[in-house]
Design a protein around this nucleic acid. Structure first.
Lengths: 216, 216
DNA sequence: AGATTACAGTAGTCTGCACTATCGTTCTCG
DNA sequence: CGAGAACGATAGTGCAGACTACTGTAATCT
């Protein structure tokens, strides 16, 4: 019933500069193609052709196409998580932690970080298609969950002291929910470019701000 | 660059009872397998084998595996949308429309419908895997978007008269956002069974209730 | 400079999957 | 009941795509 295990370990690390290039080109090309045709239609031969490489060059560093997707996923999620967590620690855009004095102040910060996550996702080759593909491939689903669980946990730790009147479990669930919905909103903005991204960003952050005020 | 167009039209309608059965068995089996291994690993031969059929029996009604996924998607989304919209019209669980007198009343209704969407998704063969697969296959993405746009629009129409002080665009965006986040939360609950579904349900509904109160 | 390793291209192999030509069997309907 | 249609099984075909044995070339090291 379970899908056969597939090796995902990187075979070799590129050492020379030229090899580093091919490694990067594979990832960039795969990302673009992922957006165009989805993981299921993506072929290693196709990547090679579009990247101007030959299969052995690709297979030197990636044991199969799942490994390529995993690397893309790792990188994108790392970038997103780092941005969010930096904001939590007070270094992010709009500076300061979660504890603005007024709703407007908190809102401004939320909007800034939400905007940045969108920007990061947009700039990344493959963008939101990576997240979609990760969700759709059972073998790689755990990647996403663990990443979000981690971010949510950090959020929880950062704020639990501030809301002693709220049950821990509720606060935990709330943080996990926020992370999930925040990323969902980001993907929505990235995927549907004709939508009014700014309004949507603002609304989702307002949503969260109001929600936060229900904690004690 | 664009993926080749693939025919999705149903080839033949089953007329006899036995044929109706095989049609349903194909869908049910495909749904289960989708959950286990994802669309990309799903094969028509595999479906046939597990369903106790032969390829020609399957290909009599489905031109290819995309058509199977599309039918699954149509059915699931129809079921979900119908439940949500019935609630909007006042026939749904917890009965009554959006206009409860107190926050508690409105919240109770939201929780009921959210719970029902989760139940529908859980009971459906393939469950949340269908939504994931639809998102990951570019050719079928539009299905999802149009479905949600439609639901959001109905919501918008149902409530815009009640909030004359809120800009139309904002209200529209808000409704679309709610629909997206609501379904995202449902999938989250369905996919991660060890999470506290009830708490999560309650939180997401509270989130919406508070948000609604910001309209005028 | 010569030895050794990293790299990538040529030219495939082979598996597995989508899909079908054909034929027997069961149903439907006059 | 008999004709014709609906159905589904047998037994495949063809091809695309994952992956590789081998060879030549560029880089690195001593």
């Amino acid at each position: 019933m379970q899908p056969e295990p597939i090796r995902l370990d990187t075979k070799l690390q590129p050492t020379q500069a030229r090899a580093q290039d091919t490694y990067e080109i594979v990832l960039a090309t795969a990302g673009e193609m992922l957006r165009d045709m989805g993981f299921e239609q993506l072929t290693t031969n196709g990547i090679c052709q579009r990247a101007g490489l030959t299969p052995p060059a690709l297979y030197r560093y990636f044991p199969n196409k799942y490994a390529i997707l995993r690397e893309l996923g790792d990188r994108l999620m790392d970038a997103q998580d780092k941005a969010v967590l930096a904001w939590l620690d007070g270094d992010g855009p709009g500076q300061g932690g979660l504890d603005g004095p007024t709703r407007e102040a908190r809102l401004a910060k939320s909007v800034a970080i939400q905007r940045e996550v969108v920007a990061i996702t947009r700039a990344f080759p493959g963008g939101a298609a990576i997240g979609r593909a990760l969700r759709a491939v059972p073998m790689l689903q755990s990647l996403r969950f663990t990443s979000r669980d981690m971010v949510a946990e950090r959020f929880y730790e950062a704020i639990r002291a501030r809301y002693p009147g709220t049950a821990e479990t509720r606060l935990r669930v709330a943080m996990r929910l926020m992370v999930e919905l925040s990323y969902a909103a980001s993907e929505m903005v990235v995927e549907e470019p004709d939508r009014d991204a700014e309004t949507l960003n603002h609304e989702v952050c307002l949503l969260f701000a109001l929600y936060f005020e229900s904690f004690r």
